[in-house]
Amino acid sequence: MSDIPHIEVKDMVCAYGDYLVLEDVSFKVNRGEILVIMGRSGCGKSTLLKHMIGLRDPAEGQVLYSGKDFAASSEREKKSLLRKFGVLYQGGALWSSMTLEENVSFPLEEYTNLKRRQILEIVDMKLSQVGLKGFQKFYPAELSGGMRKRAGLARAMALDPEVLFFDEPSSGLDPVSSKRLDDLILSLRDIFNTTVVVVTHELDSIFAIADKAVMLSPQKKTIIAQGNPKTLLEESDNPVVTEFLSRKGGRFSTSNL
């Protein structure tokens, strides 16, 4: 394996027009690592994710995949990079006019020359993996929120991606499903050596899966800590970081929501 990190974010500035969200963001993720982007609500976690998956171009700086700058790539190169991505959106983001089967087979039809029968077999497999076997003909509107999310995961996994992105995977899931999802993420990493980037503020998940975490601060508008969350909790001398990771608020936590 080469020394080049799988994902590298270099001096990135994220902004919506004139409104600065994050600046001076730099971190690296190696192949097969699980990175958690954490921080309090409104600190720009989802914004950072949007910049990483190319939905928004950085105002300054770069996002490099195996050393290749995403924003500066040609359309063709972008497409071949996107082929290796799987993204699970917060609400699943399944296409509502299509059945689960069509949703999950979409990436396969888009990028492979597999025969229809093979595609359907893969779809069946992926749906079983997330516990939705037999739901092929259902439309997203006929499923519960948690099921939609799992179906979204099946779609994200359809092409056995090299990088999986999760936007708040445990929001809207019960504790048991949430735990199962964590286990699934770990097993995907172990089996396929997938690099995983997760946006979350669920402490249980963070400690269960993260190899590395970056913490964003809404006040400083940048990364205030990075490293293994357990080490951060033990060794960080920044009270904001330890308070977050130990679930201790200030005087009255509600006033600081």
């Binding site: 949007k50 998956i53 190319g54 939905l55 972008k78 497409k79 996107l82 082929r83 991505f85 993204v87 959106y89 917060q90 609400g91 983001a93 399944l94 296409w95 509502s96 979409f106 990436p107 888009e110 990028y111 779609r155």
Partner: peptide
């Protein structure tokens, strides 16, 4: 509504 539900983002990240 597709935009609100991030369905359009999903298309885009699928290339």
């Amino acid at each position: 509504s597709m935009k609100v539900a991030e369905e359009i983002d999903a298309l885009q990240t699928m290339g």
